[in-house]
Amino acid sequence: MTHLYTVTLGVLIAAGLLTLVRLVRGPRALDRIMALDVVVTMVIAGTAVGMTMRDDSTALPVLVVLALLAFIGSVTAAHLVEKRKGMR
């Protein structure tokens, strides 16, 4: 099972790195917001895998908080982008 967790985490890290490329490359603010949202999703997934791997549930509230914060953050940021473009 340990190998399985390692492989899963490896795939997730690879996915996270690819997403980071999009986060850096951009080209628009919206792309970055989206990429950040995806990174948070992957952090949640990785935390869940880590919880299972170490057989430890301290991170459970972290998952809930991350899931809520990612949503609020993305929505707020997208609204800001729209407002900024609208005032231009």
């Binding site: 492989v7 795939v11 997730l12 690879a14 996915a15 996270g16 999009r22 995806v38 999703t41 997934a45």
Partner: peptide, 8 residues
């Protein structure tokens, strides 16, 4: 994890 990777 594979779907996460494909999404990325």
């Amino acid at each position: 994890a594979c779907f996460c990777l494909l999404g990325a």
